[in-house]
């Protein structure tokens, strides 16, 4: 596109090479060496704390109380990982967190897809107003609601029960908004109309047209919600105890207590708690990046 434009429009302008380069600014220009240097710095900055978590986990308190701090792995990594696993009850915590994040992500994706479809493609009275409410709720942080929720949990005797964490996490205005944005452009009106003319019910339309069309966005939303629920801290911290049925975050946060906490152990726990998500990002990073950017454009 740009090359076809440069040739006819400005042929007589002096240094043609420079002109062509300037015309390709903003998105098309190749990055210079400085850009790569900055990117390298950001890459190191992003990854270093994670790598150093593993380095610290492979040492012990003595070595971590010396200068200079360790820059390379010691020999304790497997021991410390094992110790953290048993000490923080991480096996159960992983099971709990997978359950919580899995149920929450699947439910949010399902509910967000049907609601997003209704907002994107169906006409009904009050659609605009209801969508405004959805967007408005995105601005209200859920933390402000924790006190009555805590009272409810206490009243129902749900302390240390996973449904206390799952149920409040199912409210996701972002999910509805995200699926709506995707379905507006991904699902042609004609297909729905054609199905309607054939007498398909709304549920048939959802099952046979909306779900297949929305699959990529559903996958991305599912991953984002899984990450979010997995990392959730405040609410699980309040209603789950470390000795009861903690999530990974609650268990890991509990590692750092005592008068002389074993720093390597804490780092091993932090590493174990992060590893599954880093794995997901390593495998599906491209899709997640695409999903975040797609959800952002019309935000």
């Amino acid at each position: 596109m740009t090359t076809t434009l440069t040739k006819p429009t400005a042929p007589e302008e002096a240094p043609p090479k420079r002109r062509a380069k300037a015309l390709r600014a903003g998105g098309q220009l190749h990055a210079g060496p400085i850009a790569y240097v900055i990117l390298a710095l950001f890459t190191i900055g992003s990854l270093f704390p994670l790598v150093w978590t593993a380095i610290a986990a492979s040492r012990d308190n003595n070595r971590l109380a010396q200068t200079p701090p360790p820059f390379w792995f010691g020999g304790n990594l497997l021991d410390k990982l094992e110790l953290a696993w048993t000490d923080a009850n991480l096996g159960e915590a992983f099971f709990n967190t997978t359950l919580v994040a899995g149920i929450s992500a699947i439910t949010i994706v399902f509910l967000s897809t049907i609601a997003g479809f209704a907002f994107a493609k169906l006409r009904f009275k009050g659609r605009g107003a209801l969508m405004l409410i959805v967007i408005g709720t995105m601005m209200v942080p859920p933390q402000l609601s924790i006190i009555p929720l805590y009272m409810m949990v206490a009243e129902l005797g749900w302390t240390d029960q996973l449904q206390a964490v799952i149920l409040p996490s199912l409210v996701s205005a972002f999910g509805v908004f995200f699926m709506r944005q995707y379905l507006i452009q991904a699902l042609p009106d004609e297909i729905i109309e054609a199905a309607r003319v054939d007498g398909a019910s709304s549920w048939r339309v959802i099952w046979h047209i909306v779900f297949p069309a929305a699959r990529p966005a559903m996958a991305v939303l599912g991953m984002l919600m899984f990450v979010q629920t997995w990392n959730d801290f405040l609410w699980p911290f309040l209603v789950l105890t470390q000795t009861g049925s903690p999530t990974v975050q609650v268990a890991v946060a509990g590692l750092g207590r005592g008068y002389t906490p074993d720093q390597a152990l804490i780092m091993a726990g932090a590493l174990l708690g992060t590893l599954p998500l880093l794995l997901v990002f390593a495998l599906f990073g491209k899709q997640i990046v695409g999903g975040i950017m797609q959800g952002a454009v019309k935000g």
Partner: peptide
């Protein structure tokens, strides 16, 4: 936004801290 070699790599790397939980990040 420039044309980059390995642009996907950088984008995923920039997102690694986002995948790290508050607990893990704060502790390190």
């Amino acid at each position: 936004n420039y044309k980059l070699r390995g642009s996907t790599f950088y984008r995923v790397v920039m997102l690694a801290p986002y995948a790290t939980s508050i607990a893990a990040a704060s502790l390190v």
